[in-house]
């Protein structure tokens, strides 16, 4: 272990911007985003793939960034919570809905919900309340009891339709 680890240059397009850094193969995508690219909106709540706080979109699909090595997704397009705003920097539809519905408290799990819901609504633009609850079922929140997050999903769908 005293020998230095082999390093890899990893290049991603993050929120539309090409970014790269040189890291060991074992650098998790979550740490790569947070500590190498200093995009700290993506949070780490468990590092074993259960809580969902680290969820980012890789080529449009939500994945757990704590269960990927950055080097594995070299070349991919990544969207983080920082990229879920509108082009003018104002709150995106999911973010705006969370604000209106009090869908967050401490805000630590929130980035994973925002990315997950953003992708979900692309596939399911008009969910029912039950579907909305199901859509967020892979993310843990310890503050809100989820009720206002479910409401946020429904509100985000409305805002998305209005803005379309």
């Amino acid at each position: 272990m005293s020998a230095a680890e082999e390093l890899y240059e990893v290049s991603l397009v993050v929120n539309g911007v090409p970014r790269s850094a040189t890291v060991p193969a074992r650098r998790l995508l979550s740490d790569f985003l947070r500590h190498d690219l200093e995009l700290t909106g993506t949070h780490v709540g468990c590092e074993h793939g259960v809580c969902g706080a680290c969820t980012v979109l890789v080529d449009g699909r939500p994945i757990r960034s704590c269960l990927q090595f950055a080097v594995t997704v070299d070349g991919a397009e990544v969207t983080t919570v920082e990229g879920c705003t509108r082009p003018d920097g104002e709150l995106g539809h999911v973010q705006q809905a969370f604000r209106e519905c009090h869908g967050l408290q401490c805000g630590f799990c929130t980035p994973g919900f925002v990315t997950t819901i953003t992708a979900y609504l692309e596939e399911n633009p008009a969910p029912t309340a039950d579907q909305a609850r199901e859509a967020i079922a892979g993310n843990l929140c310890r503050c809100t009891g989820y009720q206002n997050i479910v409401a946020s999903v429904l509100r985000a769908a409305e805002l998305r339709a209005e803005r379309a």
Partner: peptide, 22 residues
């Protein structure tokens, strides 16, 4: 009323402990 702290937290601009001191 809506929360004043939300825009930061919703856009990834919050600063939690591990977001500090790179």
């Amino acid at each position: 009323i809506q929360r004043l702290e939300d825009p930061r937290l919703l856009t990834g601009q919050g600063r939690f402990l591990d977001d500090i001191g790179h």
